[in-house]
Write a protein that binds this DNA or RNA. Structure first.
Lengths: 136, 136
DNA sequence: CTTGACTCTGGACTATACTCCAAGGTTTAT
DNA sequence: ATAAACCTTGGAGTATAGTCCAGAGTCAAG
């Protein structure tokens, strides 16, 4: 069986050693074992698991959510619907964030449109005016 | 001249007293003065300034960026173009964030599409498969 | 067998924006 | 006059995801 030190595992997934220890501390990636001198020992399964963490992160899951995903993925009572539900929830949250950002961006663009620009005194600035306005 | 204690100012903009002190610590909102006993004293201009901070926050500016905006807004050498440039930069950053989120959401939706769902073993889950895949 | 590379631990630090706390002093209302 | 409500400070804690450090021990190569 192939085994890895923490440094090799880190390199295999292009993360820092400290990050792996951080994941361990968060319960995401426990070492397979320790050597007599206390060094962490990892398996090729650890590589898969670490890859899982990184990929899920790229899709916007937090470490805590990833921990839950990993737990599910090892629960024999779980089925595809459970995972799909997690994905749907994340997708919905992202959708919400997107629409919030779109509305913010619209406001910014709208405000800028009426800002006269170069050479004009700040007292005429539509953006600053908005910021100082009384209304909510 | 109308003056405010920190508590009144807080209420006027529906923020906590601690938040105002936090803004002060960050250089966003200094009290006009202090009473003999050390109480902060604010003016109606402070109300405007605090409103400014909250509004700019709603448009996605960080406290540090807001500090810069406030500085600009009080700089007699600045003009509308300076403020507009800040707004444009923020707008661009938001746009970037939106498109990142859209691409993440697309991936999630795509992965979920091929996940068979209820009753099917996790070994068939397209989402988990993706997470465990070797490719970047 | 020594040097350099690696690993260990625990804790501090980064960024962002608060929020809460304790222990004390001040002001206001009854 | 006294109690409630307010204010002061500095520091710690919240959340997220690392990153870095010191000081010590271990391992591999020449």
């Amino acid at each position: 069986m192939t085994v890895f030190t923490i440094g090799k595992l880190a390199k295999s997934c292009d993360v820092k050693v400290d990050t792996i220890r951080h994941y361990e501390q968060k319960g995401l990636l426990l070492p397979l074992d320790r050597t007599a001198s206390g060094y962490r020992v990892y398996s090729s399964n650890s590589v898969k698991r670490l890859r899982f963490v990184r990929k899920a992160q790229h899709l916007g899951f937090t470490l805590e959510e990833i921990r839950e995903l990993l737990e599910l993925s090892e629960n024999s009572d779980a089925d595809c619907a459970d995972i799909r539900e997690k994905a749907r929830m994340k997708s919905d949250a992202i959708e919400k964030r997107i629409s919030d950002l779109i509305s913010i961006k619209k406001s910014l663009v709208e405000l800028s449109k009426y800002c006269p620009g170069k050479g004009v005194s700040l007292s005429e600035c539509s953006i600053l005016k908005h910021f100082y306005e009384e209304s909510e």
